[in-house]
Every structure is written in C-alpha cells, then in structure tokens.
Design a protein around this nucleic acid. Sequence first.
DNA 1: CAGGTGATGTGCATTTTTGCGCAGGCGTTG
DNA 2: CAACGCCTGCGCAAAAATGCACATCACCTG
Lengths: 292, 292
Amino acid sequence: MENWDEVRTAYQVARMGTVSGAAEVLGVHHATVIRHIEAIEARLGVKLFQRHARGYTPTESGQDLLRVAQATDDQFSQLVGRLKGQGDEVSGELVVTSLSSMSHLLVPVLTEFQQMHPGLVIRYLTGERLFRLEYGEAHVALRAGNAPDQPDNVVQPFARQRIGLFASQSYVDRHGVLEGIDDLKNHQFVGTDNENSRAPFNKWLREHTNEETIIFRCSDGVAMQEAIMAGAGIGFMSTWEASRRPDLVKMMEPREEWEGSLWLVTHVDLHRTNKVQSFLSFLKERSKAWQQ
Amino acid sequence: MENWDEVRTAYQVARMGTVSGAAEVLGVHHATVIRHIEAIEARLGVKLFQRHARGYTPTESGQDLLRVAQATDDQFSQLVGRLKGQGDEVSGELVVTSLSSMSHLLVPVLTEFQQMHPGLVIRYLTGERLFRLEYGEAHVALRAGNAPDQPDNVVQPFARQRIGLFASQSYVDRHGVLEGIDDLKNHQFVGTDNENSRAPFNKWLREHTNEETIIFRCSDGVAMQEAIMAGAGIGFMSTWEASRRPDLVKMMEPREEWEGSLWLVTHVDLHRTNKVQSFLSFLKERSKAWQQ
DNA sequence: CAGGTGATGTGCATTTTTGCGCAGGCGTTG
DNA sequence: CAACGCCTGCGCAAAAATGCACATCACCTG
C-alpha cells in the first residue's frame, strides 16, 4: 500500500457516501476524489465502491478499508495532539550534558526544574567524552573554555566563573597563608594533570610557579576540590563553590585573568522549543547566585 | 493531520535514519523526501528530526510518529492482504435477489453453493419491491421478462423457461382434459391478477379465452402454483416445476410463444469479481436441468 | 409533467509536485 | 593528506496532480 493519501480519500468517501461530500471535507475538487478512488481501486484490483446516481456505496472491501482508516485517522489525531503539545509544554525528556565538574552546580538546578514540571524526566549526562548535540544525544550542553563553533549549534555566553585560590584550614595550619605572588614558590598546589589544559587559571599557575610545586595533580575537577579540602595544597576553586565550604581559607583574591567562560549550547533544531527555552531561562535565573 | 503521505515519508526517514535511505525505499527522489519533512514539520510546528551530516535522527516527536506510523503501516499491509484476497476468493456475503416465485429453483442451488464455500454467507432476498443492484443491495439478481436495461448493470440471458398448461388430477376428475385450443372456453383457469401482465403466456391466455374463464387470479406466482395444485383450474407452470409434482396432468404441450426469458443481472462493479463469477457459472451449470 | 437540485464524469488549462544535476560538507580509508 | 563515499541542500525543467467548466443523469417537488 503506497500512497496513503488515496487511502484517506477513500476513507472519507466511504464515510460520507458521496464523492462531493468527501471532496468538501478534504478541501479538494471532486474530480480529484474520483481520480483517487479510481487509482486505488486499479492498484488493488478491488472495487471499493459501487457507483450510482446517489453517490458511492462502499462494498465489503470498502467497509473494511473504512474501519482501518477510521482507526488510522484517530491515531493520527491523537499523535498530532501529542506533538503539538510536546512542542509547547515541558514534558518528556530533558537531556543535559556537562563536564562532571559542574555537577555540583547543575544538579540542584535540574532537580528544582524537574519538580516544577511533573512528567519531565531529567537525564544528566556527564563523562569523559563529549556528548554530541548534533546527533541528538543531548538537548543542552554546558561547555567551558573557548566558544564552541559547531555550525548547527546555538551558542550563547552563559557566565563567567570567578575563580579564587583556596586552601583548607589544615593546610594553613601547616604551611601558613599565601603572602602574594612572590610567595607562590614557597607553597604546594593542587592542579590539573593535563599539561596542556586551556583553563586560564591553570595556565597562570604554570607560568607563575615551578612545575614541582604542583604536587597533587588530578584529571578531574571534582577530585581537585576534594584534594583541596583534604589539605593537599592550594588550588583554584570558583568562589561559589568555596562559599559553601566554610572550612576553606581564601589565599588570594579572584583575578579577572583567571575567569573562565561558560557557554550554553543547544542544537539549532531544539533551541526554539519551549522545553529548552524554559530550561535555559530557569538556568540563567538560578545561576545569578554563582557569580557573586 | 492532513496529507498522510507526508506521515509515510517521515516514517521511513525515522526508520532509515537518512533521507537518502528513505527516498530509496519510497521510490522517490531524496529532494522530495526533504521537502515532505520540511512541510510536515512546518505544519505541525514541531521538529521531528535533528539534521546532521550523517543523516536525520528522530527527536522524541519523531520517535512518537515512528511508533504510530509503524502501526499504521502494519494495518495497511494487512488490509491490502485482505482486500486482494477478497477480490479473488469466494467469501464474505453473497446477496442474491429474485422474485419469490423463483425461490424453489434458487434455494437448492444457493444451498449447494454455500456448502462448497465455507465462510460464505448467503443472503437471499425476495419480496415485492425490486432490490436495487446499483445501491449495493444485492450482488446478483434473477429477473424475468424483458431484458432489463439499466446502464450500470451487466445483463446476460440466462434461460428460457418452458411453460406448459397443467391441472391437478382433482380438476381433471371434475372437468375432464383440455381438448385443444378450441376447448379452452369450456374450462376455467388460474391466472394473474394483473391485467397488464407482460408474461407471454398470460397475454396468450387473454387472447384465446374469455375473461370470465379466469376464475382464480393471483398476484403471486407461488400462489398460482398452489391454486393449480388445489384444483382451482388450469394454469401455466414451468415444465421443471411440474415434473416435481406427479399429481399434475399436462393439459397442453409447451409452446414456444409461452416461453419466458430469465435474465441474470449483476452490477458492473461486481461482475468481474471471482465471487460473482463463480456463482454465475455454478448457477448456469445447475440450471441446465431446468430447461428439460 | 416540467423544472430544480445534487450527484457523477470528462476535456482542458493551471498549479503543484517531483526529478535531475550539481554543489558542499563530513567522515573514513589507504 | 588526499581521495573517495555518502549524506544534505538548492535551482531549474519536466511531469503529474489538481482545479475548472460543462455535460449528463437521477430523483424530488410543486
């Protein structure tokens, strides 16, 4: 059965009982309806209607088609209802991806957003590999660093994270506080394991201290925070994160040159949908607190 | 949801994952597929697919459509199977209509035909009014008299009924046998109540006897036979009917001018179907016995 | 019984849809 | 790193579907 439109035409003829009535319902000329019926009957080799002066009466075959097409029409109507609603309302899945180091920030926001929208399922994907928006693996991505420039993606600057240098009280008890830039070489640091890290604060650290002072190197942001908390050394942390940890001691004021950009990235096809837009505006609202 | 073909196109794209693959399955150019997708998305206001270099990935909406359209495709496939089969095999209903006076002939044939085709339901309609083939009230009609000339009907001569003049033994006991045409006025007859009856034997009777000799007039053929059997008078009866009633006495040899034509009539839309054709050939086979 | 209404069906002009060729991009492979 | 394969996307010409006007027929109505 190719050409589903002819099925739809035959369905309306069977329902109305006349070609003219079906044509009016379908919004086409009655000649078109006649030709559709002739085409589908010729293709199937079965007479669906008996023609007479008062209209078209469905044969047994036509009645069979009527039943099937009626069900199809219902199914499609329901589908359209779901699809149109889905475009406007916030439901189904919302897939967000970011580096795992941002989970502390995102998870509370995602949780609150989900509670605002019953029927919404949050899938928060973090991991080593970048989940790809262009293949539909995620709806929204939070990316750090330079502005991504994938052509099909909508990129908008999200926030600049203020970064400070912190250490735990236990570290201060053992090594004292940091007395300005010149004192850097007398301390030990928690840093990234990646020598090529593009994060501006990492580059700054590599430039202002010896390599040997970075005595604890992590591949993961979360681990870095844990290391700082455990007193392994001085390390960078967003002021927002640090403010939640009263045990930390600020070793150096935040500098602009440390600040990292965060980007919100969505696929162009999904960017206009209400679901994504609601989440983005909600996320921006909540994130104002991060920039203190 | 108007334009079911676009649903079908979107369904294949969702199934294949690429526009090109869908185009090949559908047997159309890939540009057509792209245009269909753009059209249905614009109409619904919902993105069904995310475009990327490797193909089209269905969104949640697209997956919803995929499920619905998959079910539709299955339903249509089954429908086509039924319809194509229905055209060839003898099943469903077979609606036959005739004057009630022919039920003695038709009922045994219909019964045997039904037993040859399990799954076939026979509807044998008799009655005063003519059931109309052109509205689908019946598949096959057995008509007597002049050739029907409805334009949409397929009419074929079926049989000529040999008609004889018969009376019951009880009538003969009282009035004796008929001694040729000149003796007609000395007998009494069972005839039709309709003065304008076009049946040739009725016209012949009106021409060759006085009106007053027709002392028992019926509107119905079955009643006429009953009247003859009861000895009410001499009457016309098909030789086939008379042969089943040994009590009857032949009063006059069949004459060609009495013979009535029987016509098989089918609607042109149903005439080609195997169901109708099988019945017609079976009916012709069985009816050879009637013409003895 | 004659006129009106509403249905089907057909030839022709028009509009819409489709096909074709080619450009451009991404990923893989040797 | 270059060549290849496979995909999308677009402009233009051809083809197909559609709309229109009109003819015809059956049935109803006054």
